[in-house]
Design a binder for these strands. Structure first.
Lengths: 235, 235
DNA sequence: ACAAAATTATGACAAATATCATTAAAAAAA
DNA sequence: TTTTTTTAATGATATTTGTCATAATTTTGT
């Protein structure tokens, strides 16, 4: 799992410019490069565990993760996703609270661990970096408000239609034109906030109505306009 | 509405120590004191409007507010509350996005407006203040995750029971022992994410079952243990 | 490739919740 | 206070969604 070959240092990291670390000076990036550890998580592996106190954050170089909380009777609720360039665990570090959710790799994921202290050291000397962290946290807070409103007011059908569009926006599509993320029906249900059976039924309906094409876990969106209409998506 | 009598300057402000401004030096607090404007909002008045770009934040000295988003067909969704010591509009300012929600006074509310530029000036020179802002935003993000999980997994009945306990925790109780906040049934519904009629019915049930006492908008919690059990509240 | 395990699919039914309609009560305005 | 408006209460009914059961299919591990 540990692959501490710092041959690719942060300065050459392909995701450097899309992370908060883009706000760092060359010297500050040295601090990160010297203290960071490279790690690979296998598909399905838990990266961070709800309730724990992490010693730092992970910066995803390549891969996809889900952030999920334990709900009633152990049922998983997926809160959000993370992909290349995203930082994991910063909420817990910056609020000085235990992790409010677990993070699990959806596919093999390469990430760099940056220790807590180095983060705080940089926050202390670089207000641009601090602002960038605030921007991310506050943006996420706005997104959370949208999700809350949708969960509270939309039907399962509406939420599922919207979620398919969100998944495409988040992960894009692959060569075959399918959503570039593989989720079980149960995971989709845990994301939409419904029973697995309901998700299966509604996806089948969408397929019947030629809005999507299903091939196992491969999902291809066909009629985005109609999906947006069903999902009451206006933006 | 404007009451720019700076007789009570920030240094003597009763809520100074419970706000992020507690991280400021005397000199930095001077900057705030010199640039701030005192304002009073009447009950029901909109303080900030969803979609707008605010020019600064409000710091609540006294009063209560609701933060609410427009949902499907104009239906209001209450996202969170704010009270003495809370800052309004910081999410939008720090993410440089339009307001994701409106803020309305639930009762006459005294607040101080601090212009955007002064905030950024202080962020630039005081990392302790920046960290405090991050702490608040990240804490709220954790709370949002809990709300998402509850909305996705709990029944309306469970959410209403839990919400009564949350309202008590947030606003406390007054001399008469009632929740120290006055909300219409519709507002409670818009908070819980259900139809007004369902809220009315369930509150009546809770009253029947001697869990609460209702007198118009006055709500007194009687059996908190049972409410917590119904609401699947464990903490 | 094969067996075992997990996931997906579908039907039947139950439960929760929304909607619409109407009346009663309370709060706000004149 | 009195009137007007808004809010609360309640019944009847429709709709949505969840639950349980079972079978088919796919994925995973060996």
């Amino acid at each position: 799992m540990e692959c501490n070959d710092n041959i690719v240092r942060c300065h050459q990291c392909p995701v450097k410019d899309i992370t908060s670390f883009s706000a760092l000076t060359k010297e500050e990036l040295d601090i990160v490069a010297d203290s960071k550890t490279c790690v690979v998580f296998k598909k399905g592996q838990i990266i961070m565990h709800e309730g724990n106190k992490p010693n730092g954050v992970y910066c995803i170089q390549k891969g996809k993760c889900k952030t999920h909380k334990l709900g009633i009777e152990g049922k998983e609720q997926i809160i959000r996703f993370a992909k290349s360039g995203d930082m994991l665990g910063y909420r817990s570090i910056l609020s000085d609270e235990p992790l409010s959710a677990s993070i699990t790799a959806l596919e093999d994921t390469h990430a760099c661990f940056v220790p807590r202290q180095e983060l705080f050291d940089i926050i202390d000397i670089n207000s641009k970096f601090s602002l960038e962290l605030m921007r991310i946290a506050c943006h996420e807070l706005g997104e959370a408000g949208k999700i809350i409103t949708n969960l509270a007011q939309k039907t399962v059908r509406e939420r599922l239609a919207e979620m398919l569009l969100i998944l495409e926006k988040t992960f894009g599509i692959n060569e075959e034109g399918n959503l570039d993320v593989s989720l079980t029906r149960e995971e989709i249900a845990n994301l939409v906030g419904t029973a697995t059976e309901s998700t299966i039924r509604l996806l089948s309906e969408f397929k019947e109505d030629k809005l999507i094409i299903l091939k196992g876990r491969k999902i291809k969106l066909v009629n985005r306009t109609k999906l947006a209409k069903i999902g009451n998506v206006f933006d």
